[in-house]
C-alpha cells in the first residue's frame, strides 16, 4: 500500500502539502511528517493520525484488506442537517465513515484491525461505525484472529440518537463473544478517546495501550468544569493520568507501537499450531 492508494487524490499534491504543528507552529511537508509517523520533527508533538495513515505505519506493506468499505450511513432518525454533515465528512476525510476495518499483518502476524478516524465527525460512533466494528469482531471470532483496535472518538454520535447509544452494547456483545472464544483483543487509545467509546470497547481490551499524552476519559472536560465550577488539574484525563490510576497497561511511543504490538501478538500465538 502506498500513499497514492490510500488517498483519493494525487500523491504529488499530498507531498507538496504542508502541515502546521499546533504546539510549535512550525510547518512540515507531509511526506516528511509521514516518514516521522506524524510526529512534529521540531518539537516532538504527536499530530492526530487518520485511519489510513495509521494503517500505513502499523501494517506490513501490501497486507491490508479492507472490509465493509462501502458501508455508508443514511439518516436513520431523520436528524436535521445530518445528511449534509455526512456528505461533508466524506469529502473532507476521503472515508465513508469514521472507522476503517480489515485484515492485515503486523510483522507477519495476522490480525483483524479497526482504526477510528477523528477527521470524520470527530470519530463519533453511529450505526455504521457500530456495525463495522461488530462485523469485524464476528469475523475475527469466526476466523480465530486477534483484534487490534485504534480508538479516537468524541463518543456516541448524537445525530443517530438512541441507535448510536445501542451500538455500545452491540459492539460489547461481539467483543464478549470474541473474548469467550479465547481470542486476544488489544486496544490502542489515541487522542482523544472519550464518552461512549471509553465506556465501551476502548476499555474492554485484554491489553490496553495508550499513546503518550492522549486525552482519555468518560465525561468531557468542559462538562466537568461546568458541573463542578472549577478548573481541572494539569494532565487530567491524559494517558499518564490513566496509567497512574490503573486503567491502561502501558503507554507506548508511536514509533515503537508496531514492534510492541507484534511482540504481544507473538506471545499470544497458539502454541501447538
Amino acid at each position: 500500500m502506498d500513499l497514492k492508494n490510500i488517498f483519493n487524490f494525487k500523491k504529488d499534491d499530498i507531498i507538496a502539502e504542508k502541515r502546521t504543528c499546533k504546539k510549535c507552529g512550525k510547518s512540515t511537508r507531509y511526506n516528511e511528517l509521514m516518514a516521522n509517523s506524524m510526529i512534529c520533527p521540531t518539537c516532538g508533538e504527536y499530530m492526530r493520525m487518520g485511519a489510513m495513515e495509521r494503517l500505513e505505519v502499523t501494517l506490513d506493506k501490501g497486507t491490508f484488506k479492507e472490509i465493509d468499505k462501502s458501508l455508508k450511513t443514511k439518516n436513520p432518525i431523520d436528524f436535521p442537517d445530518y445528511a449534509d454533515k455526512l456528505d461533508k465528512a466524506v469529502k473532507t476525510s476521503s472515508l465513508n465513515e469514521a472507522v476503517v476495518c480489515g485484515l492485515g499483518k503486523i510483522n507477519g502476524n495476522k490480525c483483524a484491525v479497526f482504526v477510528m478516524d477523528s477527521n470524520f465527525m470527530m470519530g463519533s460512533m453511529g450505526t455504521v461505525v457500530g456495525e463495522k466494528i461488530t462485523r469485524l469482531f464476528e469475523k475475527a471470532t469466526h476466523d480465530k484472529l486477534p483484534v487490534i483496535g485504534f480508538t479516537t472518538s468524541g463518543g456516541a454520535r448524537m445525530q443517530e440518537g438512541i441507535l448510536s447509544l445501542m451500538q455500545m452494547a452491540k459492539v460489547s456483545g461481539a467483543a464478549k463473544r470474541h473474548s469467550d472464544a479465547g481470542l486476544l483483543y488489544v486496544t490502542v487509545l489515541t487522542d482523544p478517546t472519550t464518552g461512549g467509546i471509553t465506556a465501551s470497547f476502548a476499555m474492554q481490551g485484554d491489553i490496553i495501550i495508550a499513546e503518550p499524552n492522549a486525552l482519555i476519559g468518560f465525561a468531557g472536560q468542559r462538562v466537568i468544569e461546568q458541573t463542578i465550577g472549577q478548573k481541572l488539574p494539569q494532565g487530567f484525563q491524559r494517558s499518564e493520568f490513566q496509567l497512574d490510576h490503573g486503567f491502561v497497561d502501558m503507554i507506548e511511543e508511536r514509533k515503537r507501537l508496531k514492534l510492541t504490538l507484534s511482540k504481544i501478538l507473538e506471545l499470544h500465538k497458539p502454541v501447538n499450531q
Partner: peptide, 18 residues
C-alpha cells in the same frame, strides 16, 4: 460527572458492565 469519578474509571466501570 466529576474529577473523582474519572479518577476511579467511570468509563471502565460502564464498559465492564456492558
Amino acid at each position: 460527572c466529576g474529577i473523582d469519578a474519572e479518577e476511579r474509571g467511570q468509563g471502565e466501570a460502564i464498559a465492564e458492565n456492558l
